[in-house]
Each structure stands twice: as C-alpha cells, then as structure tokens.
Amino acid sequence: MKWITARRRHPLAGYVVVILALALFGVGYAALAPTADQAEAQTLAAEVPSPDDVDVAAGEDIFNQTCASCHNYDGGGSDTGPDIRNSGAASVNFQVSTGRMPSMDPDSQMPRRPMVMSEQDLANLIAYYNEEIREGGPDIPYEVPGGPPQRENFEDDASYEAAMEEHEADFEAYIEGADDTDMGMKLYLTNCAHCHGWSGGGGALTDGRWAPEIHDATPREIYEAMVSGPGAMPMFSDTVIEPEEKQELISYVKKLQAEPNAGGIFDLNRVGQVAEGFIGWVVGLSLIIACAIWITAKQRAHD
C-alpha cells in the first residue's frame, strides 16, 4: 500500500491505471467470451462430473462404510445422525468438502478441516447419493466457483496449470461479475453479520456453538452453506436470497477479505475495539509509563 500511495500522484500513474484496467478488462472479457450464457455452459461443462467420470458403486461403498453408521444405509437417520434424504446434494457437498462429515463427534459442532476423501471419492459419493438416497433438497451450484484444482488429479503440470488458470479466471469473473456493493453489503450485514461478524471472522453463539470464520470457504461453499443451512445456521434458499443477490453477497465478503489494511501492517485480526483497547493499554500506555519511570530514575540519580 505504501508503495502505491507514494506513487499514485506520479504523472504517469493515471496512464498505468488505465492500461492495467484495460488489460484486466480484456483478460476478463476473453474468459467470458463470447456470451455469458455460453460461458456459463462452459464452466458447467467443466464442472459437472459427467456420468462416465463417476462410479456409483464406489460411491455406495464409501457411503456404507463412512456415513451409514450414523445416517443409516437409506440415509434415513439414526440416534447419532439426522435424516439426510431431503438435505440435497448441496448439503452433502458442503458437509464433506469442508471436512465436517464424516463427523468425529455427533454431539458437538464440527469445525472446518481438510476433506477426508479425494475429489473423486466425493464425486462418486454424490452420484450415489443423488441416485439412491436423495428425495429432495438443493442441487450443487456448479456455476459458482469451488476450490482450486488439486495437483494429484492431473497427469502433468501443463494440464494442471491450465486448470488452475481457468479456475482463477472463473473466480475473478464471478467476484467481479457482481457490481452492486451496496446490495451485497446490506445483504451480508442484515443476514449474516450478527453471527459471523462484520468481517466474516466468526463469533460466539449460544449453547457452546459458534459461527465459524468464513474466510476459507470457497464461493461455492458459501453458496451451499446458505442453501443448506448447516447446524445452527438458518437456511437462505434461492427464493429468499436470489442467486444474483447471493453473488453480490459472496462478492462483498470476498472483496472485503482481500482488502488490504490501509491503516497499518497490524490489523489486529480485524477483531476491532476489544483488541484496540488491549493494545492501547498494553503497548501504548505501558511504553509511555516505562519512559516516565526511566526519566525520573535518571533524574533521581542526579539529585
């Protein structure tokens, strides 16, 4: 930031900004070309696993081995896990990709952790779930960008890098595709901030539950969290907050998260006033008092 601040009044700065903006626009446009519909179809094509790529039988094995102990073989639930037949693929994808499921302790809220199975296993599991267990619930929003591609799913560096580039372009397009900051901000601050905090840093709830930090969640996971309403979180279906509004909301969260801390290199984790008060006392006032002690000690030595 300092670097930019120092140079932003340079006579050439304006041109540099324009050129950068044009270049960005060009790249973004190229990624979206030729029409938005087609572009969406492309990403869809890239993301939705085709029936040839998934193995329903393998998915069944995974379900029966890792999920059925709590959710039962038909997904109908048991003492240790709820009925998931109407949860929807979005819910399964959210729960497994954020590492919440399979649960380690059915009595308490699960924290986010790395996914316990491979992308391929998850795709198989979802295919099985869709085919045999599911009775309703939201679909996976494939048009919303998910996590970055994993190296082990690619044969060589070139295809991995290509996939990575495509992922980044998708991400940019989705985030930049939202341009009504006011709408995103109001939606987030009205619906989510009282649990997740203004910065998305998370917050305490009652009964030992907590609303987690949402900075690690991909846009797709945020979307899925809204449509599935995990745990203590309410559900925000596509009729309550429409997909375009969700895009604005997600874009607001992600842009805020990426925003540099213009006020200084220490952002105190964006905790706010409690941390500021703490620093004010423990660093600010203490240093000054230490100086007072030093000054008067010197002085007394000269008395």
Binding site: M185, K186, L189, T190, A193, H194, C195, H196, G197, W198, S199, G201, G203, A204, A211, L256, E259, N261, A262, G263, G264, I265, F266, D267, L268, R270, V271, G272, Q273, V274, E276, G277, F278, I279, G280, W281, V283, G284
Partner: peptide, 30 residues
C-alpha cells in the same frame, strides 16, 4: 508509532451505517 503501524477503527472496512445492519464482534471503545 501505533498510528503508523496498527490499524484502528478501519471505517472503510466497516462500511456506512444502515439501520438494518447488525453485527457481532463490534464494541464501543474500551
């Protein structure tokens, strides 16, 4: 020194006040 290095009350991140906004984690000054 604190002001140069430690961000305080980043109003540009908070955004403007609207009566419908409610958030956890914000307090008054100490």
């Amino acid at each position: 020194g604190l002001s140069g290095f430690v961000q305080i009350n980043p109003i540009h991140l908070f955004g403007p006040f609207t009566p419908t906004s409610i958030t956890s984690g914000l307090q008054p000054d100490w």
